[in-house]
């Protein structure tokens, strides 16, 4: 019993450290990618190749003055960043990074825990995460913040439907809500042997899922909650110092979560060449696939203009939702006809 507890604690700490580092370097990567796309160099002054830039940014943010607006609702104002960061961190315990490795004579499964409702657990947390943004917008007592918070909640409710329905098709194939089980069903070398993204209706589902997850994580072209040209900075206009950093971290964590889920559901998770013989390759493949999806999201951010708000809602309800429902019907029919 204590052994399992110790193992959980160690895994959680390791994942937490990796995530925090990953978030710091994603901000760096984001600026680099932006630089390449706009034919610039990007940050290259701090350290070799600019690699120490996230460290400098972090130090700068810590020493900024922490401002709490006098007319704000103080308690909710302080609570809001935590409410958006904590659920974002909690999702990572069910994501499988690899199969099993043997370390110091112990077989260690490369996921913190598995539950038979793993996927729904992630959905529950993302739906709770919206409160952070909504309360930040409301408690700031600023009209731009409030608009950002309201837009964000409306957007998340609308796109959660398409996201949830697109996953149903995957569940029909795998017959389980457990992410480990879903990845196990996609075993094999490369796509043609089992990745969900190469099966007939699921490749379209993947596109729907990816678009909806971009909207869920408030990435461009769906970043209406923080549209700088209309809302200054949206829900975190009034925030400064580490509270602002917490929102930024939550945003990048959500990006990592959505990419990881897409990897596990559609791209075969940790599966890849030689992974059966060398299980340590699993996390490497997982990281490569997730990173590819993250870079794609950045690429989209700097090439596609932002939606107008009514276009966004119409797109969600009249395009994404029907396609997701039709996909379920097609998938069910295909499974019924060709078991």
């Amino acid at each position: 019993m204590t052994n399992i507890l110790v193992e959980w604690v160690i895994k959680t700490v390791v994942i937490l450290l990796i995530l925090v580092t990953a978030v710091a370097y994603l901000t760096f990567l984001e600026r680099k990618v932006m630089g390449w796309i706009q034919l610039r160099v990007g940050p290259n002054r701090v350290g070799p190749l600019g690699l120490l830039q996230p460290l400098a940014d972090g130090l700068k943010m810590i020493f900024k003055e922490d401002i709490i607006p006098s007319q704000s609702n103080k308690w909710l104002y302080i609570l809001a960043p935590a409410l958006s960061l904590v659920p974002a961190l909690m999702t990572f315990i069910v994501i499988p990074y690899g199969s099993e490795i043997t370390l110091f004579g112990r077989t260690i499964e490369l996921h913190v825990t598995r539950m038979n409702v793993g996927l729904l657990y992630i959905f529950a947390l993302t739906s709770v995460g919206v409160y952070g943004i909504v309360l930040a917008g409301w408690s700031s007592n600023n009209k731009y913040s409030l608009m950002g918070g309201l837009r964000s909640s409306a957007q998340m409710i609308s796109y959660e439907l398409a996201l949830g329905l697109s996953i149903v098709s995957v569940l029909l194939y795998s017959g389980s809500l457990d992410l480990v089980e879903i990845v196990n069903k996609q075993g094999g070398w490369l796509g043609h042997t089992g990745w969900n993204v190469f099966r007939f209706p699921l490749m379209f589902v993947f596109i729907i899922f990816y678009i909806a997850s971009l909207a869920e994580t408030n990435r461009t072209p769906f970043d209406l909650p923080e549209a700088d040209s209309e809302l200054v900075a949206g829900y975190h206009t009034e925030y400064s110092s580490m509270k602002f950093v917490m929102f930024q971290m939550a945003e990048y964590l959500n990006l990592i979560t959505s990419s990881s889920i897409a990897t596990a559901l559609f791209l075969g998770g940790w599966n890849g060449p030689f992974v059966g013989r060398l299980p340590i390759l699993g996390p490497v493949y997982f990281a490569i696939k997730a990173l590819a999806l993250i870079v794609t999201a950045m690429w989209i951010r700097y090439t596609v203009p932002r939606f107008r708000y009514d276009q966004l809602m119409r797109f969600g309800w009249t395009t994404m939702l029907p396609i997701a429902i039709i996909n379920i019907i097609i998938t069910a029919t295909v499974i019924l006809l060709f078991p």
């Binding site: 729904l120 709770v128 919206v130 309201l150 409710i157």
Partner: peptide, 18 residues
């Protein structure tokens, strides 16, 4: 347990607060 959060805490209460 999970549906309780997804449906009530996640969807219905967001609308209330909205």
């Amino acid at each position: 347990a999970v549906i309780q959060i997804v449906v009530y805490a996640g969807a219905i209460m967001v609308l209330f607060i909205f």
